[in-house]
Design a protein around this nucleic acid. Structure first.
Length: 223
DNA sequence: CACTAGATTTTCT
DNA sequence: GAAAATCTAGTGG
């Protein structure tokens, strides 16, 4: 592998035409709904540690959670679990749920305002054979299913509670813009919540095979 | 295809 | 003590 890990460029997929640009923290310090939509098509890179082999995947499905919305962990103020949502943007928020699964979020909004985007699904770009498939237990038929859901995504990429509060500028976590723009974006109610179901705050790339198969897909509409 | 139950732990009431 | 921003395997039509 070539040197210069300090460069903001990165070869990500088989598409080397465009030079990938590391997203600055100002990208995240905006309205949560805008960040959730704009994250579609971006490349997430996860490194297990210094010298660890990177895994990368293109984000294809997100959800917005912010402020006092009853569906958001932030709705009752900065509890120990969700305190990071109130901190500076461009940081990871990882929490554990259902006794089994980690969930990966990116903190949004200016410091002091609570917001986060749940990364619900991604399309493997690099490392699916060596890393992701092994982490998923080897019983996944197609690459497109490796990270087609928030729990699956964390399993495939090796995201654990130790990733909570890490900056998205690296070295463990990075998000790149490689110039790709989703052809068509759809919205729907968020998945797995009981309150706030009236809001269409789930975003996904229409027709992408790595989008999770959620009941909400029936209610989806183009944006 | 639709629906159900079970796994299993952190957080808050 | 109950619910939770989930997934899988199983049943039945």
């Amino acid at each position: 592998m070539a040197s210069s890990s300090t460069s903001s460029s990165a070869r990500s997929s088989g598409d080397n035409r465009a030079e990938a640009r590391l997203l600055p923290s100002s990208f995240y310090g905006r309205d949560t709904l805008e960040v959730a939509r704009d994250l579609l098509g971006k490349i997430l890179v996860v490194r297990a540690g210094p010298g660890g082999r990177p895994l990368s995947a293109r984000i294809v499905e997100t959800e917005a959670y912010s402020g006092k919305d009853p569906a958001s962990h932030s709705c009752r103020g900065p509890t120990p679990r969700c305190a990071v949502m109130f901190g500076p943007p461009g940081v990871s928020y990882v929490y554990f749920i259902y006794g089994m699964y980690e969930m990966l979020n990116f903190v949004t909004e200016a410091k002091g305002r609570a917001g986060a985007v749940l990364i619900r699904a991604a399309e493997p770009v690099w490392g699916s054979e060596e890393g992701m498939r092994r982490r998923r237990g080897g019983k996944v038929r197609h690459d497109r299913e490796l990270a087609a859901g928030p729990g699956k995504l964390c399993r495939a990429l090796g995201i654990r509670m130790s990733h909570n509060g890490l900056g998205l500028q690296g070295p463990e976590l990075q998000v790149f813009d490689d110039g790709c723009r989703p052809a068509e974006v759809s919205v729907s109610p968020r998945v797995g919540i009981r309150e706030g179901t009236d809001k269409f705050w789930r975003f996904f790339i229409a027709g992408n095979p790595s989008v999770s198969r959620a009941p909400q897909n029936r209610e989806a509409r183009p944006v």
